[in-house]
Amino acid sequence: MAVLSTPRSAVQLASKGTPVREHLFRTLLIASLVVAFIFMVALLSYVFVEGWPRLDSRLWENMPSIRNPDIAGAQSAITGTLWVISLTGLFTLPTGIAAAIYLEEYADKTRWYNRVIELNIQNLAGIPSIVYGILGLGIIARTLGLGFSVITASLTLGLLVLPIVIIASREALRAVPPSIREGSLALGATQWQTISRQVLPASIPGIATGSILALSRAIGEAAPLLMLGAVSFIRFNPDGIFASYTVLPIQIFNWISQSREGFHVLAAAAIVVLLVILLLMNSVAIWLRNRYQKRW
């Protein structure tokens, strides 16, 4: 009877072995990760290998063409994308962050209108992007008379990703401990001083991450821009916010719809360019996050 002679505490502390369920759960989690990873690697390598023959200076030096894939490039789409995404950021980041500050720091949550606003922002985040295209066409392009221009595209994409910016910024603001606000207010700082000098700087990493995520979504959007004039064949760079434009996702879409193989290679190469722009944006977010990293 070895068990009986063992001291009681030792018996209680002895390992009972990891239950099968634990193992199963772990395996499941790792498996999901592997699936996601394999898909990503497959996608990237496919695009890269496919587009490799055309990944040269012709891509950003030449204008699009549908006659000859050998001399066609994506310059107007690249500059168009840069124009549209910069303007989208310029419009949506200040608006979204300001809205988040209002909702987190000022809004009295017992008021019905603040609750309505909150509920609506959650809902807006779930609306299909084509609906924003219709909105942009009806209100921004026609009623406001901004036409099929860079500014129309930017405002529409800005509205599309605004809920993401607001939700991410609110999370970041909420992560700043209330004791920081109290400490500042107790020194005779005003609420705005407290927000602008303590809360906002402390939440920059979170806000930056969320903002880049939102802009990354905007940069890849094609659907709403299909309704806003980006489809037209553009052989010049935008020279201002009211200029006609095209963007990379649309240009890629156009080339893929062509029957000749040469254009498919070109599309793959353009996808790589789009990915590089995305990667650069993400590096900015990571740099900001590390630079302003806080610990409590």
């Binding site: 004791s179 109290e182 400490g183 806080k294």
Partner: peptide
């Protein structure tokens, strides 16, 4: 004019 010190030290980061 009336300062306050809290239960848990809360220095700014």
């Amino acid at each position: 004019r009336i300062g306050m010190v809290f239960q848990k030290p809360n220095p700014f980061p």
